[in-house]
């Protein structure tokens, strides 16, 4: 009967119910959960993958992993931080695989193409960001690009709050160092 309740119309159903349905193997329920925060999921994937194609690829991989492992999610209310952690991990493993294929030149060209206002600065930022280790890059991007607070970053990346702060500090310092002079103040 729950089945009917959720599927019919789809209005007024809360996250917890959908998570329960998804745990029972209901694919549409899982899809509804993701679509309810589609912008957040897409942005998060984009931060790591930097282009639409790869972002959509990892989102597809993610939803399959979610479907296969949701029965092991212990706290239903933690669905979103749990699924975003999985998304981040999927991105990282995909990036690891793609590593050999992406050269710096390619990044440079892409950045140049889609940015007209101040290409030089933008290239520099992207270039120096990409020289930082992934653990520093990701906290900076999540904090500044996606406007995540420390607590959210800590939950999604599964690292302690203190580590978020120290990585963000260290990352920003390295970035300033790399960019030099006028960027510092």
């Amino acid at each position: 009967m729950l089945d009917t309740l959720i599927r019919e119309g789809g209005g007024g159903v809360n996250t917890i119910d959908l998570v329960k349905e998804a745990k029972n193997g209901d694919k549409e329920a899982l899809l509804a959960l993701i679509m309810a925060q589609q912008v957040e999921f897409y942005k998060l994937a984009f931060v790591y993958m930097k282009n639409e194609d790869d972002a959509m690829d990892v989102l597809q991989d993610m939803i399959v992993i979610l479907y296969e492992s949701i029965s092991r999610l212990k706290k239903d209310e933690a669905f979103y931080s749990w699924s975003k952690t999985i998304l981040v991990n999927t991105c990282k493993s995909k990036l690891k695989k793609n590593k050999k294929l992406i050269s710096i030149d390619e990044i440079r060209e892409e950045s140049y193409e889609d940015y007209s206002e101040n290409p030089v600065d933008k290239i520099l930022l992207e270039k120096y960001l990409s020289t930082l280790s992934i653990k520093h890059q990701e906290v900076i991007k999540l904090r500044y690009y996606l406007d995540y607070d420390y607590d959210t970053i800590s939950k999604v990346l599964k690292i302690p709050l203190g580590t978020v702060k120290s990585r963000l500090n260290a990352g920003m310092n390295k970035l300033k160092e790399a960019l030099g002079g006028e960027y510092i103040e």
Binding site: Y42, F46, E52, I63, D121, L125, Y144, Y145, Y183
Partner: peptide, 30 residues
Amino acid sequence: KLDLLLNEEKGEFDNIKLPNDMENRLRSAL
């Protein structure tokens, strides 16, 4: 200037355009 740059990037993310077929592509993966 670094903050400004990061802010500009944020602006791009705020205006990011979702792929039209996002729902369909996720559904076909499932």
